[in-house]
Design a protein around this nucleic acid. Structure first.
Length: 288
DNA sequence: AACGCATACAACCGCGAACGT
DNA sequence: CACGTTCGCGGTTGTATGCGT
């Protein structure tokens, strides 16, 4: 089909992003929303390919990202989900608010894999390395007995290739993700929406439990961005005007401080604070 | 203090799926 | 239906940082 390269190799910058580039990308997305990544670099004045911009945004700049190490609970959830979904990092990430697939993938490869191996558990099969599968609770670490531990773990083939209903699950996973923690993948406010039902949750006991334990809605409000950013925004009765400016400032802070610095609960507080933040700059990462 | 190795994480690459014409 | 384009995913690589010698 003569696939077109995602970007013309000439004149396209690669490697680590600078603060200036981040700023440009954030400003552009806050102003225009996420659409047509291919056009983003040109419109935002970046010498990057669209793919790189999308990656930078989704993995690093998104305002709903938690930063820092995964908590014990998150780690356990990742293990449990991996046992069921295999290396479907995006699906796993969809269940962990504020975490990206890349982050989870990295954490898996650097921490969890070793941890499981150390515990005598095959990180691929989630079965004991020496003993053939006997117990059903081997996946979870002893130190953090999980509420989903009692769920059976499917054989490797099942883990890696979930049954066909998974396809359905995947098809609406995006909407789950959007409704729980992540921004719409397309232009804000133009969510494809038609698949917002969570039917598939019901046919999977494990997922039921996972969802029950899932306090995901915490960020819903943050991503209730107006289709047109110029429309202003009200969160917790705080009028965000000009919305872009305040949010951009807040973004630039959160990006570097990480949400842990604020804590989840104070998410809205941060938004409130951001209203009063006028002196921020990329080179000066101070809250006030 | 300097060096080499190990680790962690950001970013890139290639592929397939989804979508539009 | 065929083709072209765009997007998202998963695997992999590159690099910065930490740690031990």
């Amino acid at each position: 089909m003569g696939r077109q390269p995602c970007c013309d190799k000439l004149g396209v910058k690669k490697g680590p992003w600078t603060a200036e580039e981040d700023k440009k990308l954030i400003n552009f997305i806050l102003t225009n929303g996420q659409c047509c990544w291919r056009a983003v670099p040109k419109l935002a004045g970046l010498l990057r390919c669209g793919k790189s911009c999308r990656l930078r945004w989704t993995n690093y700049l998104r305002p709903d990202l938690k930063r820092g190490l995964l908590t014990e609970a998150e780690e356990q959830l990742v293990i449990d989900l991996h046992a069921r979904l295999g290396n479907r990092w995006s699906k796993i990430a969809a269940r962990l608010p504020g975490r990206t697939d890349n982050e989870i993938k990295n954490h898996w490869n650097t921490h969890i894999k070793k941890k499981l191996t150390k515990m005598g558990i095959d990180p691929v099969t989630h079965e004991p390395i020496n003993k053939p599968s006997t117990t059903t609770t081997t996946t979870s670490s002893q130190e953090t007995p999980s509420t989903v531990d009692h769920q059976h773990h499917e054989p490797e083939s099942e883990n890696l290739r979930p049954p066909s209903p998974e396809k359905l699950d995947e098809s609406h996973a995006t909407s789950e993700e959007n409704s729980s923690s992540s921004p719409p993948e397309t232009c804000w406010g133009a969510e494809t929406g038609s698949t917002t039902s969570d039917n598939n949750r019901d046919d999977d006991p494990l997922m039921n439990i996972l969802w029950e334990n899932d306090d995901t809605p915490f960020l819903d409000v943050s991503w209730d961005f107006p289709a047109s950013p110029s429309a202003g925004n009200t969160i917790n009765n705080v009028h965000m005007s000009p919305w872009e400016e305040n949010c951009a400032n807040w973004l630039l802070d959160c990006q570097d401080f990480g949400f842990e610095e604020f804590g989840f609960g104070c998410f809205n507080d941060v938004l409130d604070m951001s209203v009063n933040i006028n002196t921020l700059d990329m080179g000066d990462h101070k809250l006030i």
